[in-house]
Design a binder for these strands. Structure first.
Lengths: 237, 237
DNA sequence: CGTGCAGTTGAGCAAATTCAACGCTTGTGG
DNA sequence: CCACAAGCGTTGAATTTGCTCAACTGCACG
């Protein structure tokens, strides 16, 4: 009886990773660990594709044939509950991998929050070379364990008060985008609310309270300036 | 500003997996997948140890040298927040593996809820043979991904109402213990509360309400009889 | 028999949700 | 170009939920 999922944009389910031909404006930026066997394999075997805002990348319980790496933009994973509530599994920024987890089917749906480009690589191909090169398997395991760790950290957030959740969210985002003081959020208030298990109103009120106490500034609703990071750190305990 | 961690038993930090000599009453029961390379390796290379109630198995941020598999009893993992609150990461029943996740150090502490026996296997040994046998690596990945999935499912619980959380917990436990109607919980109300991000009073009240509505019966406080599983399923949506 | 621990229950309170209204920006069509 | 609708975000008031504090029960153990 919490968030009311609100307005899920009618994502066009037309997109599928199969058509390799759709190579868009490839922004070849320096990928991190670009020289490792895993990243190498992803770059060699992966197809680069672009998807615009609100376009679905894969759907819950669809066969999980591919692994994805964000090149630019931002992707969210989510589940819709039967009563319409939505839970966001995570936000994925450039350089981050999503679609992890074994089992035949995806546990969540994924779509682009902003216009994005994504590297797509066939899971079976990755597994095949993992059998020959242990480094690939280790990297897959490392990524999965890192994702596990991140989700565990979020559980820690979800048992806390609204103020602590929002503070924790801001610090997490500041940590993940290179920006150190000014954060440009790619996601809406509704996304943040569904990520933190709060309502959009509570998120908004909490941010306003932070602004009143000079902890942050809100030049625009999506741009957040951390004025007093120490105060935020104190909140999350 | 939620749960108040309450009464963490003074776990004796004396225990460490190193002393292999401490082989206790080894209950050799049929392990699941006992013939697979992974389980085989764990059985061959693992040391069986017993630990009694409230004895710590490993501590948060200790070096993660070992992997553990519950043989009998029940283990919980947890983190203590700076303000004293406790978050339980998970309960591990016989046959289940804990201590997963890479990185040099553990993300959580672990201790025995009831007198337990646990198989302990050196991570480095497992990694060494994983480089030669891809099946080991795959199984490690599978277990980590399964753990990830379980944690994601719990996030879905944590964004819901107290009633939904408790109902979800009961159904999860019913699913994991072989018992189909009568569940004997190994954990206290405080453990359940810290697992679900609720207070002990709310858990107790919710269970009482379930009993009044004839959804469950409570012969003793730790024994729960599911009288109307459909009603519980309806609650979790 | 008293002490301590685990669990239950009640009353009051604080926090977050719900419902509702409003402001701002954007895009669209006349 | 303006009017208007739609989407997003903010704010206020009333309500609900779950927490805090406190008392009380049953049980095990010395």
């Amino acid at each position: 009886m919490l968030t009311q999922a609100a307005h899920i944009a009618p994502t066009s389910r037309t997109f599928h990773p199969a058509p390799i031909g759709t190579v868009p404006q490839i922004t070849l930026r320096p990928l991190n660990h670009a020289d490792e066997p895993f990243s190498q394999a992803v770059r060699l075997m992966g197809a680069c594709m672009s998807c615009s805002r609100n376009v679905e990348i894969f759907g819950e319980s669809e066969p999980a044939e591919y692994l994805y790496k964000v090149v630019s933009g931002c992707v969210r994973t989510y589940r819709i509950l039967s009563d319409g509530r939505r839970q966001i599994g995570g936000f994925y920024l450039p350089g981050e991998v999503f679609g992890l987890g074994v089992g035949a089917n995806h546990a969540m749906s994924a779509d682009a929050i902003a216009d994005s480009t994504v590297l797509v690589v066939k899971r079976s191909a990755l597994n095949a070379i993992a059998d020959r090169d242990p480094a690939i398997g280790r990297e897959l395991l490392r990524l999965t364990a890192q994702e596990l760790r991140r989700v565990q950290d979020r559980i820690l957030l979800l048992i806390k008060s609204a103020q602590e959740r929002v503070a924790g969210f801001l610090l997490e985002m500041a940590d993940r985008v290179v920006a150190d003081e000014v954060i440009d959020l790619p996601m809406s208030r509704q996304d943040i609310a569904d990520y933190l298990g709060l309502t959009i109103e509570t998120v908004s009120r909490t941010l306003s309270a932070f602004e009143r106490s000079a902890t942050i500034a809100l030049p625009t609703s999506r741009r957040i300036v951390l004025r007093n990071r120490a105060a935020l750190n104190r909140m999350i305990g």
